[in-house]
Every structure is written in C-alpha cells, then in structure tokens.
Design a protein around this nucleic acid. Sequence first.
DNA 1: ATATGATGTGAGCATATAGTCACGTGGAGA
DNA 2: TCTCCACGTGACTATATGCTCACATCATAT
Lengths: 196, 196
Amino acid sequence: MLVKKSTRIRKEEIVQAALEVVGRKGVRALTIAAIADSAGMSEANIYRHFSGKDEIFSALADFIGSSVMGNAATIATGNRTSLEKLETIFFSHIKIIAEHPGVPRFIFSEDVLLGHPNVAKTLTLRIGNYIETVSGVIAAGIHGGEFKNGLSPRETALTMLGIIQFTALRQTIGALNCDIDLESKKLWANFMNLIN
Amino acid sequence: MLVKKSTRIRKEEIVQAALEVVGRKGVRALTIAAIADSAGMSEANIYRHFSGKDEIFSALADFIGSSVMGNAATIATGNRTSLEKLETIFFSHIKIIAEHPGVPRFIFSEDVLLGHPNVAKTLTLRIGNYIETVSGVIAAGIHGGEFKNGLSPRETALTMLGIIQFTALRQTIGALNCDIDLESKKLWANFMNLIN
DNA sequence: ATATGATGTGAGCATATAGTCACGTGGAGA
DNA sequence: TCTCCACGTGACTATATGCTCACATCATAT
C-alpha cells in the first residue's frame, strides 16, 4: 500500500500524472486508469481526492493557465524593448511546448473544448488575454518605431501565435524534420524579417 | 427498411455522414452509432460496407486529402501572379474551413494522429506537400520581385499556414468574435503588409 | 495507549462502444 | 416468373471506462 499523504499533495501528484499522460498518449488516453497508473496509485484513490474526471480537467486547466500562460503577461510588463519582449514570449512558449507536449495538446484538445464546456470557457478566456497581451506589445513596438508602420497589432499577434501553434501541431504529429529548437529559431528570424 | 443501394454509393454516404458528425460534435463523438444515425441506417449496415472504424477513418482522410488539399497544387500550377495564387489558396482554405468544420477538426484531431497511425501518415505526407507547394509559390514571388527580399520561403509558408490553422482553431472553440470571413480578410490584409 | 478520522484499495456496477451473426428482403439477371 | 446474392437489421458479445462501496490501514490528537 501507498504511503499516506495529504489531499493537497495527492492532488498535485494527480494533476502532474495527468499532464504526463496527455503528453505521452494524448487527451483521448487520459483515463482514470491511466492517471492512476502514471501516479502509481489505485483508481479508487483518485476519487478520494477528486470528485471525478471533470474536476481533474479543471485542475489541469488551472495549472496550465496559471503556471504557463500567465507567464506572457509578466514578460509584457517588463521594461525591455518590444522586440525583446516578443522574443522572450515566443521562445518561452516554444520551450514549454518542447518540455511539456501535454500543454498544447490539452489546450487545443477536442475532448476539452467540446466535452468540458466549463474548462473550455476558462481556456478560451486565457487565450483571449494572451492575444491581447501580445497585441499590446506589438502596438507599443509599432508606436515606438521598432516595427514597421501600417501593421495591425492584433492580426500580427495572431500571426505570431499561429506560428507557435502550428509548430506545436507539427511537433505533435512528428512532422518536424529537425528539432524544435532549430525550427523555432528559423521561424523567429523570418518573423523578425516580416515585421521590420 | 432502407432502400437498397450499391456499396459504392453507401460508402460515399457513410463518409459524408462521418464528416458531418465530426463537424457537429467532433472526432471524439465519431462513433459507429453516431455515423449510423447521421446516415439514417443501422449500425450493422455500416459494417457491411466498411470492415471497421479504421477503414472509415482512412476513407475520410482520402476524401479530405483529394478533394480539399489537392486544391492548392492545382492553383499553384496556374499562370497568375504569385500573390494572386497565394490569395486564392488562402481564401479557398478558409472557405473550406467555414463550410466544413469537420475538415480541420479531423486533420488535426488527436484521435486520428495518435490513434490511427496509418491515417496520420497519409495526412502528414499531404501536409508536407501542401507546405512545399506554398513555399514554391512564395519563392517564385520573391524571385519575381513581388515579395520583399530576404524572406525565407519555407518559414513564410509555415507562417501563412499557421495563420489559417490558428483561425480554424479559433473557429472551432468559438473564439472568433466576428465572422470568419471578416476575420480572414483582416488577417490576409495584414499578411500582405508583412510580406511586402 | 487508544480512538478517530483521513487515506488507500480490490471488487464490482452501469454504461458506452466496436464488432459479430443469424436471419430477412428485394432487385437484377436467368 | 423465379432464383440468388448482395444489401439491410435486431439482437447479441466482449471490452473499456467512469464511478461506488465496503473494508483495510495509518497518522495523530487526546
């Protein structure tokens, strides 16, 4: 039998186990049995700490939202140049994708978006904030003369996030011939060229 | 009982029904029961025409691949300017997304990519061709002086497809505040600004 | 030391889903 | 017209999965 731990700790363990499962086998394979297996505990014990799958999904969304996507907002409030901020946001995001493939998979999972409306609402809100944050940085850069005039901040932000999102997708399907680091560097170099 | 039809016709009906289910409720909900219901036939009859779910997935992938993604290659071989070709490819793709939400959902579905490796392989190949096609058009445009010098064709193509892909995603999750037509026009206008 | 409540688990239930099978049935060719 | 075989279906099986429950066990407060 397992060593006993507090519910607080077990909840964290379960969320981490769930994220690991998603990264390895996808949201579709995020079954209670898989989580229990990854966390090294019985299925029944999962239910002692979470009321059900919905609650686990919510907890995962909260973890990802706060620890990952809140990151961009912090970077945006710094006092570096707009270009430096954008670059930091870009590569932070890529790094997260590379290290935790479960993150983009979960955020853009059909199971979440169509099967758990409450979670989807939370995530949609966060994505919206993320877009606005990046838009703000770009708008400041245009205004400050760092980026070329005439760009639309919002659409340029969507373009940048599209690059990131498409990279995540291609990594998921194994379509990245070279490694994600090199690929992202090439994409960023070209993006800088586009906005100047 | 249903009027009898040939297997060839029933197969087409079943594939269309499957695509409809995906568009309405996602790949996760693409059960034999749902397909049978959408196609107005019994579950057992599905199995008379397809050996199983795998074969239905393959048929769907073939349909989408040939009728949708082959489109870009045709456009690319025309004799219009590179910009016109790009624009046509862009809006054709957006139109498909708008009219058949099941298409992007299926192509980028975790269930397909992780659960049906053979289908995933086919789709990955097609996506690769698509990227190369767009890259070729952009390279020609740069060479012909239509787009600004110094752009990397491949990375610029990935950027354009990222925009499309991210738009599809945002439509799926209902994050498009305005309609997809207006949104895509704004994105395209900004993209033209980026590459000039 | 002991009682108590929080933590842990094997066994089992209900439901959903992929797939099978024996049995109709109707239309095309003889 | 009649036959035959491809087409159509209800009923069924096997398996997976979310979830419950009775029971075990351990830490801790008294």
